[in-house]
Amino acid sequence: MDSNIVIYILSDSIGETGEQVARAAASQFNSGKYEIRRFPYITDEEQIVEVFEEAKEEQSIVVFTVVIERLKKFILLKSKEYDIPAVDLMTPVLNSIESVVGFQPKRESGLIRRLDEQYFKKVEAVEFAVKYDDGKDTRGIKKADIILVGVSRTSKTPLSMYLAHKNFKVANVPLVPEVPAPDELFEKDTKRVFGLIANPFKLNEIRQERLRSLGLSNNANYASIERIKEELEYSKKIMERLECKVIDVSNKAVEETAGIIIEIMKENFD
């Protein structure tokens, strides 16, 4: 690249993809004398004409990521008219995918940005679930989409993480007879609170296994049937006060319990 060149990026979205590809290509030329000018959110022909009018005054090329067929054709038309090279980044890839899947693309602008937004929303929900796991910080109760309450080993944490991957912000609160339930629980919309219970003998097995994995004696009070029954009775009283939906997770996979909760949330809030 012996002289300065201006690379115009046209996009019907933000143009980030086009700019990254253009920079990657330009970096392959030793001098590196180039300028990027990005024109996002192209929606009509007039904008395209303005870009070509500017580009004709310089040594330039046009790189575009436009999926709207009408605008794509207009860019290629102006490319010939102004004798300025135009590179269509999207069409070859779209055509190749179409040939494999057998149906046409949506040709909607900005879809990748919406996918990115979904991704970051999921990350935020996962971070929320970690931060407000196991009653670490009761302030999360007010901010959460869903609150899970129950005694130890009723799958609160894995369920919180699963729901987080479905973009729900979840806080979970352990119910222990010796520890008063936080006031924030009783101020929450009851439709957002879910109580988890389980068969005491099932919990006994799970807790004994947990103790073994930690190298502790399985005779600890934590795993005794009497203690578990006491905890469950206490938790059921709290759930009655909360007037929340109660789910028995004894023989349910996390996915199944999550499915029940998501369905209820849709009914209540969609």
Rank of each mutant, 00 (worst) to 15 (best):
R38Q: 07
N172D: 13
I238S: 11
Y162M: 04
I146K: 05
V101K: 12
S96F: 11
V246P: 03
V63H: 03
K252D: 00
V254G: 10
R241W: 11
E184Y: 00
M161Q: 13
F52T: 10
S160F: 15
T154D: 10
I112Q: 14
H165W: 02
K169E: 06
S11W: 00
I9F: 00
D133P: 09
V6P: 00
S31M: 11
K131F: 03
L10G: 02
F103R: 12
G195R: 04
E233T: 13
A181R: 06
I247D: 07
Q20C: 08
P180W: 03
A26V: 09
M90A: 12
E50P: 03
K136I: 10
E127K: 10
E178W: 08
L163T: 10
E233Y: 01
E19V: 12
I14H: 06
E124R: 13
Q47V: 06
T43D: 05
E98Q: 14
P105A: 11
V179E: 07
K121L: 12
V93S: 08
V6S: 06
P92G: 05
P92S: 08
F120K: 01
E255N: 02
L214A: 04
C244A: 08
E267K: 15
I84V: 07
M161C: 05
Q59G: 11
E240G: 04
F29T: 08
M1S: 13
V87E: 06
A171V: 10
A220D: 15
L10H: 05
R210H: 11
S155P: 09
S213P: 12
I260R: 04
S3A: 00
I262P: 02
R210N: 07
L163Q: 02
L163V: 05
L211H: 08
E108H: 08
D270M: 07
N4H: 12
E81S: 01
V63N: 01
K72S: 14
V170T: 11
S250C: 13
T17P: 04
E117C: 05
S213T: 15
R70F: 01
K245D: 15
S217E: 11
L214P: 02
E57M: 11
Y132P: 00
I14R: 04
V100N: 03
V179I: 15
S13Y: 00
K121S: 14
Y34N: 01
V170E: 01
E57T: 13
D134C: 14
P182F: 06
A144K: 08
V249D: 05
A181K: 03
K106E: 09
V151M: 08
G110T: 09
F168S: 03
K166F: 00
L214G: 02
V126P: 00
L196C: 05
E263N: 10
A258G: 15
L216Y: 09
L203T: 03
G195P: 07
Y132S: 02
E231N: 09
T190C: 08
L175S: 03
L196V: 08
R70C: 02
Y222S: 02
E263F: 04
T190A: 11
I261M: 06
I225C: 01
E58S: 10
R114A: 01
D189I: 04
T157W: 14
Q118T: 09
